[in-house]
Amino acid sequence: MKRLNSPDAIESATVPEQAAHWWIVLHEESCTREDREAFAAWVRRSPERVEAYLRVTMMMGTLQSKHRKWPDTPPDELIRAARASSAEIIPLGRSQPMARAPGPSASVGARRFTYASVAAICCVLVVAWLLWTPQRFQTEIGEQRSVLLGDGSLITLNTASEIEVKLTDGRRLIRLVRGEALFEVAHDSQRPFDVDTGKAVVRAVGTRFNIDRRADRTTVSVVQGKVQVMTEQPGKPQPSGHEAVAVDAPATEFLVEAQRLVVTEAGMSEPEHIADIAPVTAWTQRQLVFENRSLAEVAEEFNRYNRQHILIESPRLRTQSVTGVFQANDSASFLAFIANIPGVRVTTSAAGHHVVSLPEGGEGPKVLR
């Protein structure tokens, strides 16, 4: 399969070649909404194109991918749209024309209507699926990247992070699947910009904010502007008949510049003022800034950027505070810093991980600087 490089090449290619071209275009990370609309115009022109594209899609295994979801559009809406479609009445496939059996002309008309309906429904399904399928962007361990959206918004992904992007005429929806991202949102009052983190939805119109999603918590920090954080809070027991039942109540908090909050299974924390906003986005410069953070947290942060992890074995050492600025991809300097602590021993495991231990009797300083 190959991508066709000009409109003339696309026009002169066979239908299967065109279908292969569109499969490549639609599955590239650079695919835009304009590309998808151009494909929709192409595929609507005949059921033969629908069939050709479906054959390519099935061959590539796309329809079996766990990451692909069909739209939630009700079947009756799809059927109404299909009947209103301008698709040509061409039977699917390339089989020889069937011999016309004797009978009333109504039977022929019914067959032609069936062909047209099936072809148009397939066309609507394919177009709707492609237009609703979100784009996915991700980074590997130690990698960072920036993604410029079609609306002008910029998303910068931190190490080991993943997002799904779905832009429509009425809404801009981003799903932060894992990791951390900095969002610089282009102003558009007609299209809300929502980031779904699983535990909460963060809405902004035009602002700059950071979201860090971990297994047990999600931290939302506003660098500039204002955001709205919406989540489901565990409600208080409410009487129902003879027994009390817990009712989930929606919760909303507004964050302004230099504020943050944390979302956990228990709900949202109160907004907290950020004295120095620079450390929030320091990771975009591959810097890790710590102010009285426990050694266990510091090690966890380094482990996000490096495949060889730092393992703090001593419980006393894990709770000691650390203050300093380090390069995210330079764990060797941090290990050298730890190795200078009296009584601390740093060894390397068979798997290549760095094991930090504090033998019995070793105290270690209370604050590491």
Rank of each mutant, 00 (worst) to 15 (best):
S349I: 03
T319Y: 04
S349F: 05
V263W: 02
L295S: 00
P359N: 04
A266N: 12
E313Q: 12
A275P: 04
T319I: 02
I274C: 05
P359H: 06
A332L: 13
A339I: 01
R293E: 15
R293T: 04
H353S: 11
G235D: 10
W283N: 06
G343W: 08
L255Y: 10
P234E: 02
P365F: 12
K226V: 12
Q320H: 13
R316I: 12
E301N: 04
A275K: 14
H354F: 15
Q287A: 10
A328F: 03
A258M: 07
E360G: 12
N303D: 14
A328V: 03
H273M: 03
A282D: 08
I338D: 02
V263F: 00
G352E: 12
F337Y: 12
A299F: 05
P234F: 03
E272K: 02
F337K: 03
L288E: 04
L358A: 13
R260H: 13
L311S: 08
A350M: 11
R260G: 07
I274Q: 04
N329L: 15
E270I: 05
V344M: 09
L311A: 05
E297R: 07
W283Q: 06
A299R: 01
G352T: 10
V247Y: 01
A244M: 14
L317F: 13
V280H: 07
V344S: 02
I338H: 01
I277A: 10
S357T: 15
V346P: 05
G364M: 08
L358I: 03
N306Y: 06
T347L: 11
P234Q: 05
E291D: 15
A332F: 12
T264G: 12
A350S: 13
V346Y: 01
D276F: 03
V355Y: 09
V346M: 01
P315Y: 08
R345Y: 04
Y305R: 12
T284K: 10
H273C: 00
A299Q: 05
T319D: 14
G241D: 12
L295T: 03
P234C: 02
V247H: 04
T323V: 11
W283D: 09
E300R: 13
V322W: 09
E243Q: 15
G324F: 09
M230H: 11
R316E: 14
G352I: 10
S240F: 13
K226M: 14
T319E: 15
F254M: 08
T264F: 11
R307A: 12
P237S: 08
V247I: 15
H309V: 03
V346N: 02
G343C: 03
P271D: 07
S294T: 15
T323D: 01
P234V: 02
V245T: 14
I274W: 10
P315G: 06
T264V: 07
Y305K: 11
R304D: 08
Q233F: 06
E360K: 13
N292Q: 14
H242I: 07
S321D: 01
Q320N: 06
V325Y: 05
I341Y: 08
A249T: 15
K226E: 13
V245N: 02
A251I: 11
V263A: 10
A351E: 15
T264D: 09
H273D: 00
R318F: 10
E232P: 00
I310T: 05
E363C: 02
G267W: 10
G352M: 10
E253G: 00
T264R: 14
A299V: 08
P271W: 12
L317R: 01
